[in-house]
């Protein structure tokens, strides 16, 4: 397969994963626990967007924005009703993490209850792909790349040019100091949930548009999203983006590599072509995860 096609496929995969990984890494950074419900909310939000778009006939972009806002609000509500109380009680981060797992199971099945397990397909025209430098890419995929790029820029601006962003970075750098300098951290945390879930919904909807939408979507991408966040250095949003792109490339390259020549020892043995069975595709992110944990657990951009 052409290298240009690998690059295109990897970019798309990376773009989708990075919007999901940003929120995950942010919550971990500020609150100190891994949110196992994160991708479930992405799928839930994508369902909301699908409902607005195809059942109520609202314009697609507007539907996604609405769904993202709504899911962000749910994030705030859950923080107010659950996590804030637990923080006040000084509950262990371990407890919080298990709660998110339970929450994830509940959300996934609430989606199933409302929208059933049958798959949904965003009503997109099916077009023949465009050819760019030998790589095939559809208009929808170009749109996905474009929106992902805009979202990243917006996130960067948010982090560096707003009060929220500055406060968030301050909290991230030093929680004690931030508290002392009168930053309203409770409010910042709520905003953070809002941003994390809104971004997750955009990422989730992009995945659903490119592929399909179904209740288990969130669970199916949880491992790659975590892997991307850890690979880039958990707690660092830029690392999350970098990790997602790296993972996208690794997945596509490993699956298309032919290990045959490697094992034939320069033509000594004829082993034919040796490729990783596509059945193991989901295991690639796991292998990368283990490698990262063995070599550099803090990830590419993480501090030691």
């Amino acid at each position: 397969m052409e290298i240009s096609q690998i690059i295109v496929n990897s970019l798309i995969r990376g773009a989708e994963l990075s919007l999901l990984a940003i929120g995950l890494t942010m919550v971990y950074d500020i609150l100190g626990f891994a949110n196992f419900a994160h991708t479930e909310f992405a799928a839930f939000g994508a369902f909301l967007g699908f409902t607005f778009n195809s059942l109520l006939g609202i314009n697609l972009l507007l539907s996604v924005v609405l769904a993202a806002l709504l899911t962000g609000l749910i994030g705030i509500l859950l923080d107010l009703s659950i996590f804030e109380k637990l923080r006040a009680r000084n509950a262990k981060t371990l407890t919080m993490m298990i709660i998110t797992m339970g929450m994830g199971i509940a959300i996934r099945n609430i989606s199933r209850l409302i929208w059933t397990s049958s798959t949904k397909n965003f009503p997109m025209p099916l077009l023949q792909p465009l050819k760019i430098l030998g790589a095939r890419i559809t208009r929808v995929q170009l749109g996905i790349l474009f929106i992902a790029a805009i979202s990243m820029v917006a996130f960067h601006l948010l982090l560096h040019h707003t009060k929220f962003g500055k406060a968030l970075r301050a909290i991230s750098d030093n929680k004690e100091l931030a508290r002392a300098s009168a930053i309203d951290s409770a409010k910042m945390v709520q905003w953070m949930w809002f941003v994390a879930y809104s971004y997750a919904v955009i990422g989730g909807t992009m995945l659903a548009i490119e592929h399909l939408l179904y209740p288990r979507l969130g669970f199916d991408i949880i491992i790659p999203v975590f892997c991307a966040a850890i690979l880039g250095g958990i707690g660092n949003p830029y690392g999350a983006v970098l990790g997602a792109l790296t993972l996208g490339f690794a997945e596509n390259v490993i699956i298309s590599l032919d290990f045959g020549p490697l094992f034939s020892l320069g033509g000594l043995f004829d082993v034919g072509s040796l490729q990783l069975s596509t059945g193991y595709k989901p295991a690639i992110s796991f292998m990368i995860l283990i490698l990262v944990l063995l070599i550099k657990p803090t990830g590419i951009l993480g501090e030691n």
Partner: peptide
């Protein structure tokens, strides 16, 4: 059955969450 199966997993998920909050 699909609703039932979804409903029972919702119950199990919510049981986990509420036990950890109210009776850890």
């Amino acid at each position: 059955s699909d609703l039932m199966s979804a409903a029972r997993m919702i119950v199990i998920g919510l049981l986990m969450v509420s036990f950890l909050i109210f009776r850890p």
